[in-house]
Amino acid sequence: MKTIKDINTTITPQPLVDDKFTKSGGLWQDTFKRLKKNNIAVFGAIIIGILFFCAIFAPFLAPHDPENGILKDRQQPPSEKYLLGTDSQGRDVLSRIIHGAGISVQIGVISVGIALLFGTTLGVLSGYYGRWIDVGIMRLVDIMLAFPTILLALAIVTILGPSLKNAMIAVGIVNIPRFARIVRASVLSVKETEYVEASKAIGCTDVQIIFRHVLPNCLAPIIVQATLTIGTAILEAAGLSFLGLGAQPPMPEWGAMLADSRGYLRQAPWSVMYPGLAIMLTVLGFNLLGDGLRDALDPRLKE
């Protein structure tokens, strides 16, 4: 042990190693550094941070019960007792928004998880094996892309029946094609690199090549796409809930809150405005972070 340490200490002071090289901590550390310099992305990350904080600590943060209101206190304007006012059922809007954060995070993560899993699988199969597999999968993806996303999601929920779970599945399914396309494109370019050819030459199996060499090198675009898609997924799920096809009452989902309160725009504008703002800020947060990540992961793109 001692000897190795000694050797190490003797090596470091030597000026043989390139200055740049020692400072660099690999792709991920570099990315993080570049991201930190991007103020807008940091703003996005802060919003998302707050969102996750609310999602995890909702039961401690929320001042009131999100689902059981006091009918006598309905449509109270923002006050000390109810910071953002109450809705038509006498429920505290702030508490509902805080609890809704958890639901939104869940929607974002689960539906994007579905899209990611299936989209990546399809993309890799299609890009790596090519030929008829590629043609088959890509035509399927084209067909799915031909539908407006919300329409396709509506159709899926109508078949499955309205519930939050099914809304997540629907939003996941409609986002599969995006991932499939992006992954396929990256796989196509990675497939042609020397190191993949070298792995083939030394007799690696397809599975080994895909998981050891191809996928890790496609990670950057997938991460960017996933971050951006979480934002749209939350928006799409809120849209479905607004139409009554997602979260069912009394669940404090933001889209459902908008739908419940839209009739009271005059009597209780706060019960409409704040859930709307929450949706907007969340989507904004994910979009800003996604854009920042893209720039940070691929600095050439910026210039």
Binding site: E67, S88, Q89, D260
Partner: peptide
Amino acid sequence: PQPKEIATAMQQQFAA
């Protein structure tokens, strides 16, 4: 006039 609101309020009372 507001069946959905009434249903939501009744849902709470039943839950109790």
